[in-house]
């Protein structure tokens, strides 16, 4: 049985007066990929960003309810968001490597965290790039600027950058929607490898992607969590009519 790593209890999120999330409760398990699907504006990205408190950056946001991780509510007063985000890493829709070399991008989090041992950093950089399935493509040009890579390669460098700081949970916000199918395929296969070690939560617009790689799928609509279950069940025999309508392409 997989261990429960993150859970939310009755989470509401407001942008000013607008209620973007209307009481979401669900759990996420170790060694699983959980996919969040739903039409644009349904709140799935907002929900994802709430887990590592990236929504804190937006002015006028109010959040109620609990997000439990590591035995604590991440919205408690005493939470160090800097530490939290090291444990719950995030990959964005647009690849956003820093304007430095590939090596520096991956080593960055380590160096900021104060790691000095060059050999150790080298080792972690290589391991992270291998896990992100890009080592073979970049091993001879680690000193080159990461911005010179293709979009798909940049995205994998961004994933390696997150892996280097050894998080427990990886949040991915539509990580392949800006990429071509071949790059997307590489990232999907990589995620299936990564789930052996991490808890992975992915927002995706691509339902085939959700059905291919995820173990559990959650369907969001208008700020509500309509249904969450095993992916196979969601895609073959969903409980709710809205879910069935959405996955069969009747709306959204």
């Amino acid at each position: 049985m997989n261990e429960q790593i993150v859970s939310t209890e009755n989470v509401h999120l407001y942008y000013g007066d607008f209620e973007a999330l209307k009481g979401i409760s669900m759990e996420f398990y170790d060694n699983q990929i959980t996919a969040l699907i739903g039409p644009s504006g349904c709140g799935k990205s907002t929900y994802l960003r709430l887990i590592n408190r990236m929504n804190d950056l937006i002015p006028g946001v109010k959040i109620t309810g609990k997000v439990n991780y590591d035995g604590k509510n991440v919205y408690d007063e005493g939470t160090d968001t800097v530490e939290l985000r090291k444990k719950i890493g995030m990959v964005f829709q647009q690849p956003n490597p820093f304007p430095f070399s590939i090596y520096e991008n991956v080593a960055y989090g380590l160096k900021i965290a104060g790691m000095k041992d060059k050999n150790k950093i080298d080792e972690i950089v290589e391991r992270s790039l291998r896990k992100a399935a890009i080592w073979n493509e970049v091993k001879d040009k680690l000193d080159e600027n990461a911005l010179a890579l293709s979009g798909g390669q940049q995205q994998r460098v961004c994933i390696a950058r997150v892996l280097a700081i050894e998080p427990d949970v990886i949040l991915l916000d539509e990580p392949t929607s800006a990429l071509d199918p071949i790059s997307s395929g590489k990232i999907e296969r990589m995620l299936e490898e990564l789930k052996k070690e991490y808890t992975i939560i992915i927002v995706t617009h691509n339902m085939q992607q959700a059905s291919r790689i995820s173990d559990r799928t959650a369907f969001f609509l208008d700020g509500n969590l309509i249904e969450v279950d095993d992916t196979r069940k969601i895609f073959t025999n969903p409980e709710k009519k809205e879910t069935e309508d959405y996955i069969s392409g009747r709306f959204g």
């Binding site: 820093f98 430095f100 900021i112």
Partner: peptide
Amino acid sequence: IPSSQREGGLALGLSKWETVTRIILPA
């Protein structure tokens, strides 16, 4: 500097100040 760079830094566990001095300023 695109806000994606800022978010990338923060998501990596950099503080706001570190994000400014080590990512935004160099860029």
